[in-house]
Nucleic acid binder design. Structure first.
Length: 575
DNA sequence: GAGTCCGCTCGG
DNA sequence: TATACCGAGCGGACTC
């Protein structure tokens, strides 16, 4: 059963009940905004519907803010994006219709919605245009029916149903993780910064240890006025000191033998820490002991998530000490080891590669299979296969990999050739790559028609190869994203089944105050914050959810996707 | 002064 | 020890 939740005027919401085939069952029921959360909670307990709304990031945070959690949803905007692009739906009416208000970008969330701001804001569209047209042709129930019809008439309804459910569950998880926040000890973060950089100073000034390094660099290069933050000045100073350098990249500097290099490298590292995750970062993004980035499900074409604000995709190892569980709680950190090559074995059906990863580190298995002689070689060759390397060590090792695992290598080759022709490729569950731009297609057309100059021909070949590398990687990355969504969706369900811990002295926000819950996700890694007594059970749940995801994607194919799991107080101690 | 691009470094 | 895929974000350098 579906219940479609949409706005009905400024201070009311409507609830329409639909049957699984999309036909109307009841409603609409109109609810004053002030009583909506209560009504949702009631229906959730009695009817357990799949909630349908235009945009989870708009609709769900206000519910969470008053402690209401829902089990399932269908996010119309995210689902539509998948269905409109999927190669499995090309023949459907939804894919053929012209763009509508449902294709518009969601409203920008700005900073992650805080509990206090959100509780007053359900459907509050006073100063921004409605993201979706209420009523009329584009009312949400009608859009849901179009989508259900597209799935029903698609080339593979089951795969798409799974993908849409996983994508929508991901949207719920994203809102819940932003709401819960990643436990963050500001005092430990401050200690760490002070130790590495010196005491905090005002904006625009250099902390003491950083300034000391700057002085050292000036002394060693003889450039008394040098500002080490300016790459151009650094380049000039190094050349003045008799060094031959083209850029100020760390790897290039590391080649050089000069007393200015060590302090310069150290300066760059610490300066990066200060600007990216220093005190002002902490003030902007950590509140009351929680780091709450805004996750953007579907933000990357491959189905990976993006984030807005806080740089949650790049939390440096340097600061992970600050990620610390509440008293009486633990962090369960899990990542899927060598996820992408294992996914490649699965989507290609390469039994030899799948066997190489069973019961062992996949790269070790590849060495054991005789394709290459060291783990490092196995890794660089596999990455090269998935990214489309042509030169260097990786390019040289590829033929050896191809002899041992022809099925897997042929799969990514086929995807690359399709991309070079401008065709679409598709993930395991049905997410398709975007088409190349019109300019791309025009240049290819000119090249094949013989109307292009030599320079244009060269550019056309380059563009084709570039797009081929993209589609080659897409099939792997997007299928890995499918898997990760299924993993998390199953895990979320499992965590919700834990009964609230009797003694949970932490201060996790409702509705997660006494239950294990997800607090972080990054491509192939998750962190669960849990009452300590549940930590072992949570670790087991993580593994069984991973196995469930592998079965959902690959059925009986003998593929293993094992997890590295750590139960720790601090993220820094994981692995 | 605002907007944009680029170089660099962080993450997977 | 780059290469090759996907990102975020900062600060400098540049343009208007």
């Amino acid at each position: 059963m579906y219940i479609v939740l949409s706005e009905a005027g400024t201070d009311r919401a409507s609830l329409s009940t639909l049957n699984d085939d999309g036909s109307a069952a009841a409603g609409p029921e109109y609810i004053p905004r002030a009583r909506l959360a209560e009504r949702v909670a009631q229906l959730e307990a009695t009817a357990a519907p799949r909630w349908v709304w235009g945009d989870t990031a708009t609709a769900y945070p206000p519910l969470l803010a008053v402690g209401v959690r829902v089990e399932r949803c269908h996010d119309l905007r995210l689902s539509r994006a998948i269905l409109r692009a999927s190669s499995l739906t090309v023949e459907t009416a939804l894919a053929r219709e012209s763009a509508s208000v449902w294709d518009a970008a969601p409203p920008l969330g700005g900073p992650a919605v805080s509990a206090t701001a959100a509780s007053a804001a359900l459907f509050d569209l006073d100063d921004s245009p409605a993201p979706h047209a209420p009523g009329g042709d584009d009312d949400p129930p009608a859009e849901l029916r179009r989508q259900l019809e597209a799935v029903r008439t698609s080339a593979d309804p089951n795969r798409l149903r799974l993908l849409l459910a996983a994508e929508s569950a991901g949207a719920l998880i994203a809102s819940e993780m932003s709401h819960a926040g990643l436990p963050w000890r500001e005092d430990l973060h401050d200690e760490l910064l002070t130790e590495l950089l010196g005491a905090r100073v005002g904006a625009g000034l250099r902390p003491e240890l950083l300034e000391r390094l700057a002085e050292q660099i000036r002394a060693e290069t003889g450039a008394a006025q040098l500002n080490p933050d300016s790459p151009a000045e650094v380049l000039r100073a190094l050349r003045g000191a008799g060094l031959t350098v083209v850029t100020t990249r760390s790897w290039e500097l590391k080649q050089l033998d000069h007393p200015a290099i060590a302090p310069l490298l150290e300066y760059k590292k610490l300066s990066r820490l200060l600007s990216a995750n220093g005190w002002s970062w902490m003030e902007s993004w950590v509140t009351d002991g929680r780091f709450s980035p805004e996750y953007v499900p579907g933000g990357v074409v491959s189905g990976r998530w993006a984030t807005r604000g806080g740089g949650a995709l790049q939390l440096p190892k340097q600061v992970r000490r600050a990620v610390t569980a509440d008293d009486g709680w633990m962090l369960v950190v899990a990542d899927a080891a060598q996820l992408e090559p294992r996914i490649l074995a699965g989507i290609s059906g390469d039994t030899a590669m799948a066997a190489a990863g069973r019961g062992t580190d996949l790269y070790a298995g590849i060495v054991a299979g005789g394709a290459v002689s060291t783990r490092a070689e196995a890794k660089v060759a596999m990455l090269g296969a998935m990214y489309g390397a042509t030169t260097g060590e990786s390019g040289r090792l590829l033929p050896r990999l191809a002899r041992t695992y022809p099925t897997a290598l042929a799969y990514v080759e086929t995807a690359a050739r399709a991309g070079e022709r401008g065709e679409v490729v598709t993930s395991r569950l049905g997410r398709s790559s975007p088409r190349p731009s019109d300019e791309w297609a025009e240049l290819q057309a000119r090249a094949t028609e013989g109307a292009a100059s030599d320079a244009e021909l060269a550019r056309a070949r380059q563009q084709a190869r570039d797009w081929g590398r993209f589609t080659r990687n897409f099939v792997v990355q997007a299928s890995a994203a499918d898997w990760a969504l299924c993993w998390m969706a199953d895990l979320r369900r499992a965590l919700a089944a834990f009964s609230p811990a009797a003694a949970a002295p932490g201060r996790a926000a409702a509705p997660f105050g006494r239950q294990p819950h997800l607090v972080f996700f990054l491509h192939d890694e998750v962190i669960v914050h849990t009452p300590a007594a549940y930590a072992e059970e949570v670790a087991a749940a993580l593994c069984s959810s991973a196995a469930a995801a592998t079965r959902l994607l690959f059925g009986a194919f003998p593929l293993e996707i094992p997890l590295d799991v750590s139960i720790v107080s601090s993220y820094a101690d994981a692995d």
